[in-house]
Write a protein that binds this DNA or RNA. Structure first.
Lengths: 131, 131
DNA sequence: ATTTGACTTCGAGTGCACTCGAAGGTTTAA
DNA sequence: TTAAACCTTCGAGTGCACTCGAAGTCAAAT
């Protein structure tokens, strides 16, 4: 058995993005390795799906398209493992900082929630007794 | 002593946003309580700065402008404490989910980092001995 | 008296990341 | 053989959240 390939709709379903987005990513250079069948239809290999997967992880952790392009370029250079590592480690740091920032802001919101809870508690204490 | 007010530049510096953004927020209805001096200059009260602060917390945790508008409207209704509470609690849930999602994606990225580290380790083990 | 600099409104422009739709080619099923 | 259900390219459109700049007003300093 040869390596199975997926068409664009299957790849889209598998990766949880739209086919439109997969075409867009390819045309801006994020996915340079997608091959075509005799009709010009895209064929997504296991490798391609892996590339889509990591790119979406980067996107979903806030990396802008420009950063994703840099990583995609490094994926094309098999000797660029240290550079990939550096990019990912820098990004990991950025994401960790982003999580901390979210947690800080979340705490401020929770403080506000507590204040509002006390306010409504004050009102509810005026409710008539059960008797 | 009367309540001190800040001009737009001071408010911007204090809140870490641009004066442009403060005017934008006001004109889209996020800040309906800003008063003006005799020249039409904006005066930011303590209350206004508090409103800006919570709105920015909401923004920085991913709430879209539409949601911020809803909260700003509730701030105008002093009887709407339970509604404010509900909005903030829903948002808190959304932020907690976002943090979990970030952590999941971060783990996937860290797995990739580990793989790359092993690859480079393989190469570095070919280094000549110190003797 | 005039220059500096901070403020005002208003509408237009920017950057990002898609998202869509038109026009056309191919395979599949009725 | 013709209709449906895919796929293709291409350029244009969308939504979001600002961001900017022009034209004008006003107060303080030179």
């Amino acid at each position: 058995m040869s390596a199975p390939t997926l068409n664009i709709q299957q790849a889209a379903t598998h990766s949880k993005v739209s086919a439109h987005t997969l075409r867009y990513y390819e045309r801006i250079g994020l996915l340079p390795t997608i091959t075509r069948d005799s009709n010009g239809y895209r064929q997504y290999s296991e490798y391609d799906l892996g590339a889509v997967n990591i790119l979406l992880r980067l996107r979903d952790t806030g990396m802008p398209i420009q950063g994703m392009k840099r990583f995609a370029a490094l994926l094309q250079d098999e000797t660029a493992i240290p550079e990939r590592l550096e990019l990912l480690e820098q990004h990991r740091k950025a994401v960790e900082e982003r999580i901390l920032e979210l947690q800080t802001n979340l705490e401020a919101i929770e403080t506000k929630i507590q204040i509002y809870r006390k306010t409504t508690k004050g009102f509810s204490s005026c409710k008539p007794s059960s008797k």
